[in-house]
């Protein structure tokens, strides 16, 4: 397992994808935090943490990176080589998730702190940052595992990204728009919304910890699906 992780770690840092994704994460966070902080300062929005609000935008860069670590193997045609080095599908998928998680946790916390710093420069009382930044890191790690697993299940980068965007960005707000209890309830079961309840520390409709567990459940489901497809389908 250590060898598989070393190999995947080497692969991650030897293409430009990772640098663009991480740069994207910081830029998106800075832009979103600046904008949200101005809204908060103007009294248009009343939320404790600007950083948490801004993750909605910055998370897209993390999701893109995570899903590319898996789908890039198919689009670049390297999956057969990779599987001939590490034939155990479980070991390969675990190594990829471990590498994505490590990078996402460190960068996710850093991005969260950046959002906090920008917010505190604009908003007088921006609240504590460190705790939220750590929660952002955890949230992004689970989202990254979901994206990696889904990438293994679907293989194509485009279809994977579309499904992820629909699930995280597009469908939940559409469900919430009419503000009907049933539809809100369905939206609350979506991974992004559940993760949002965890990040905001909402007590309603369920405690924050339940939000985290729902997101973790989706991630586990996606990883299981990815592992199944990797094991059963020809490479």
């Amino acid at each position: 397992m250590r060898a598989a992780i070393r190999s995947e770690w080497t692969k991650l840092w030897t293409t430009r994808t990772v640098w663009w994704a991480l740069l994207g994460a910081f830029v998106l966070m800075a832009a979103a935090a600046g904008q949200n902080a101005i809204y908060v300062e103007n009294g248009d929005v009343t939320t404790a943490s600007v950083a948490v609000m801004s993750v909605t935008i910055a998370q897209l860069a993390f999701v893109a990176l995570a899903m590319l670590v898996m789908t890039g193997e198919y689009s670049a045609g390297t999956i057969r080589a990779t599987l001939s080095w590490i034939p155990s599908r479980g070991r390969l998928l675990s190594a990829k998730i471990a590498v994505v998680s490590a990078v996402t946790l460190v960068t996710g916390v850093a991005v969260g702190l950046l959002g906090g710093v920008i917010a505190s420069a604009i908003v007088d009382d921006s609240g504590s940052i460190a705790g939220d930044a750590f929660k952002i890191g955890i949230y992004l790690v689970l989202l990254g595992a979901l994206a990696t697993g889904l990438g293994a299940a679907l293989r194509g980068p485009v279809v994977t990204l579309v499904v992820l965007l629909m699930t995280i960005v597009v469908i939940p707000p559409l469900l919430q728009l009419p503000d009907i209890a049933v539809l809100n309830g369905i939206a609350d079961a979506f991974p992004g919304v559940a993760g949002g309840h965890f990040l905001y520390g909402d007590a309603d409709p369920y405690p924050p910890l339940v939000g985290l567990l729902i997101l973790a459940g989706w991630a586990a489901l996606a990883v299981a699906a990815g592992w199944q497809v990797l094991t059963r389908r020809d490479a």
Binding site: A3, A4, R6, S7, E8, T10, K11, T14, T15, R16, T17, G72, A76, T78, A81, W85, I86
Partner: peptide, 17 residues
């Protein structure tokens, strides 16, 4: 081989695996 990766880095990742 990933077109964006150097041949040497490709072999390094392979060796480490």
């Amino acid at each position: 081989v990933h077109p964006g990766r150097t041949g040497r880095n490709h072999l390094l990742a392979m060796a480490r695996s």
